[in-house]
């Protein structure tokens, strides 16, 4: 007797977000990235369509990240001193498909770079590398409201992904993203209700839900990973059950969290790499669509894992 498999019929679909615009689309990217679009839980290919692979973005900074783990600094070497060189190294040496430029240097405590400086950097990056771009603020609301609209304008038509919009501060960024044709990251601190609420607020301003990516904020392996894991599973189940306001892809800042773990601060370089890798693997199972990561080896391992999952 054949065992009958159990197929769930999900009425909902995760929205599909496109990052990057080609030359004939008003941008200058050589390739674009699509995420989302799933009609089932992670990697259950026999149940529903999974049109797009999860993707890794290399995290780069506008200033030299002096407090990064020595293993990461060793890996990127002097390229860290110049964001453009760093970006080129990611693309040329490590075959990065997507970059996430964090504008840490704009933070009042880390150099207080001006909007003009940051917008200049974005223009230069867009000129020197042809992969799609995630533009990520410094986390200081006031400062992000100055620099992100300027960067958005500098990247007009390139369909970047820009963040974070937060519950108390989403209007300025939403307006800029709307005006310049980008996508937005909506951050909700491990809270499904805030995620939903913020998505509604942003879409009420006219930016469609198909241009929002949720940053659920994550904890690293051993540091609250399970909270994000379950929040993501719950949100994804709600999305597949038909809640459109939660049906956005997830972006997870894996590298930033994993390399903060006490466990990585040991001599064996493998410990940090595997910490970043295992954090990513678990969150892929919870539904992560974009993984922002740091160590090239961890990224290589995750890419090959994704490849294996999607292999024929």
């Amino acid at each position: 007797m054949a065992e009958e498999v159990l197929i769930e019929k999900w009425p909902g679909t995760v929205s599909s977000v496109t990052i990057g615009a080609l030359k004939n689309e008003g941008g200058s990217r050589s390739a674009i990235i699509k995420v989302g679009g799933q009609k089932t839980l992670p990697f259950l290919f026999k149940e529903g369509q999974i049109p797009n692979k999860p993707v890794v973005a290399f995290e780069i900074w506008d200033i030299s990240p002096d407090d990064w783990h020595p293993e990461l600094i060793k890996e990127y070497g002097t390229s860290l001193k110049d964001p453009v060189v760093w970006a080129e190294k990611c693309v040329n040496d490590h075959k990065a498909e997507l970059l996430c430029i964090k504008l840490q240097g704009a933070h009042p405590d880390f150099g207080n770079k001006t909007a003009k400086e940051e917008a200049g950097l974005i223009s230069q990056l867009l000129k020197k590398v042809s992969v799609p771009l995630i533009i990520y603020g410094c986390g200081d609301n006031e400062k992000d409201n100055e620099i992100l609209p300027a960067c958005s304008e500098a990247a007009k038509g390139e369909k970047c992904l820009i963040g974070d919009a937060v519950q108390e501060n989403y209007k300025t960024l939403t307006a800029a993203v709307l005006a310049d044709g980008h996508n937005i990251i909506a951050e909700s601190p491990i809270d499904i209700n805030i995620a939903k609420q913020l998505n509604i607020l942003i879409s009420d301003m006219g930016l469609s839900l198909e241009r929002i990516v949720i940053n659920p904020t994550i904890g690293a392996l051993g540091y609250g990973l399970e909270y994000a894991y379950s929040i993501m599973e719950r949100a994804r189940l709600a999305a597949l059950s038909g809640d459109k306001t939660l049906a956005c892809p997830f972006i997870c800042f894996i590298g930033q969290e994993a390399w903060r773990a006490k466990e990585t601060k040991v001599e064996e370089s493998q410990q940090g790499i595997i910490w970043e890798q295992v954090t990513a693997i678990a969150l892929l199972e919870a539904g992560a669509d974009i993984l922002v990561m740091r160590h090239p080896k961890a990224i290589e391992k995750i890419n090959s894992h994704i490849q294996e999952l999607f292999g024929s």
Binding site: L221, Y229, E263, E268, Q270, Q271, I273, I274, W275, Q277, V278, I281, A282, E285, A286, K297, K301, I302, S304, H305
Partner: peptide, 30 residues
């Protein structure tokens, strides 16, 4: 790394026993 990737997948999703061949401290701790 490959072994850890598969093991981590199935620790997350429903395995009650995961068998490995490697036993490096950094792999097992994670």
């Amino acid at each position: 790394y490959k072994e850890a990737a598969e093991a981590a997948t199935f620790i997350s999703k429903y395995a009650s026993i995961v068998l490995l061949s490697g036993h490096k401290t950094w792999e097992i701790l994670s």
